[in-house]
């Protein structure tokens, strides 16, 4: 018996969420005294296999020459590779969430979605009702587990190497398929919101979209951060929906979360309060965001942010 991990990648680049998922799978495998193997599906897989080895994976099963994402095909390949595994772990990304249910149906396995912790073999922590309640669930049988991004640490680099075994690509049902017509890669080099180590979010206190560009984006870029927003900002049309953090937006769990001009409504906190370090910048010293902030800067963002950007640039240049 072993545990399979789908190491999601896109055009040869491993998703950070894959490594966190590897960590989660390793935690459970160690409790069971069994090994973890990786599953890689991409056009060229050699560098990805090497990378998996570096993080302690001894065996990778791979499918090379796949140039296009297709959920049914990915689910088929993963199922073919995991017939003997006691559990399959996938990152709870859009792809992972789409593929995991298909794999669970094919294997008739027990699904455990979006875990935020592992207490014991088959005992997981989850969060429900818009992150307002944490639960512990016990699951039996073969498992298909998805792992929330940003919760598990990255595994340590052990500098090993992995063997690579091709996955049988039993013919895929070719009829009634969806077709991925087009992929537009996001512009710029900011990290993705749910994957970022640092998130800088702006709220209504920024005063408008132009100030977002003037203050929030430069701060994010200085910190190498992703840009987020409160719902007030998204509803006002200042920023796209995809950037909303909170109960009805994205759940983020970065190392550092910087809330600028955000009051800290409970629905916003539901999406970010698991960040390791929270920085808030707000003029109102009574703002609820200060109750969760490790660094609660009372001040006007128009004064504080430019000075902060300058200071960060100086430190980075030194």
């Amino acid at each position: 018996m072993s545990i399979a991990v789908f190491l999601e990648s896109y055009q040869g680049k491993m998703a950070k969420a894959s490594l966190e998922t590897l960590k989660a799978a390793t935690v459970m495998a160690e409790k069971l005294g069994i090994s973890v193997f990786g599953i890689i599906i991409d056009d060229t897989v050699d560098t990805l296999v090497q990378e998996a080895g570096k993080f302690g994976v001894a065996t990778v099963k791979s499918s090379a020459g796949v140039t296009i994402y297709h959920p049914t095909m990915y689910a088929r390949i993963i199922t073919n590779a995991t017939k003997d595994a006691s559990a399959v772990f996938l990152p709870a990304t859009v792809w992972g969430n789409e593929i995991a249910p298909m794999v669970a149906v094919k294997l008739d396995a027990t699904p455990v979605s979006d875990i935020i912790g592992i207490e014991d073999v088959g005992t997981f922590k989850r969060s429900i009702h818009g992150n307002k309640i944490h639960t512990t669930v016990k699951a039996e049988g073969n498992l298909v587990v998805t792992v929330r991004s940003g919760v598990f640490d990255l595994p340590g680099e052990v500098g090993g190497s992995a063997s690579n075994e091709p996955i049988s690509t039993e013919t895929v049902d070719s009829d009634n398929f969806i077709k991925l017509a087009e992929v537009l890669v996001a512009q710029g080099d900011r990290p993705e919101l749910t994957e970022a180590d640092i998130v800088v979010s702006g709220g209504r206190g920024t005063g408008g979209p132009e100030n977002f560009a003037q203050h929030i984006e430069p701060l994010a870029d200085a910190m190498g951060a992703a840009v987020g927003a409160s719902r007030a900002v998204v509803d006002a049309g200042w920023r796209p929906h995809g950037e909303q953090v909170g109960q009805t937006g994205k759940f983020v769990s970065p190392k550092v979360y910087v809330a600028v001009g955000i009051s800290g409504a409970i629905q916003h906190l539901a999406g970010m309060s698991t960040a390791d370090v929270i920085v808030a910048i707000n003029t109102d010293s009574e703002a609820p965001i200060f109750k969760v902030a490790d660094y609660g800067v009372v001040g006007d963002l128009n004064d504080v942010v430019p000075k902060l950007v300058e200071a960060i640039k100086q430190v980075k240049a030194a």
Binding site: T123, K132, S285, G296
Partner: peptide, 15 residues
């Protein structure tokens, strides 16, 4: 087997 309110983050340091 268990439900709980998430641990409250002990922030509250103002600068």
């Amino acid at each position: 087997i268990k439900a709980a309110f998430p641990p409250q983050k002990a922030g509250g340091t103002k600068i």
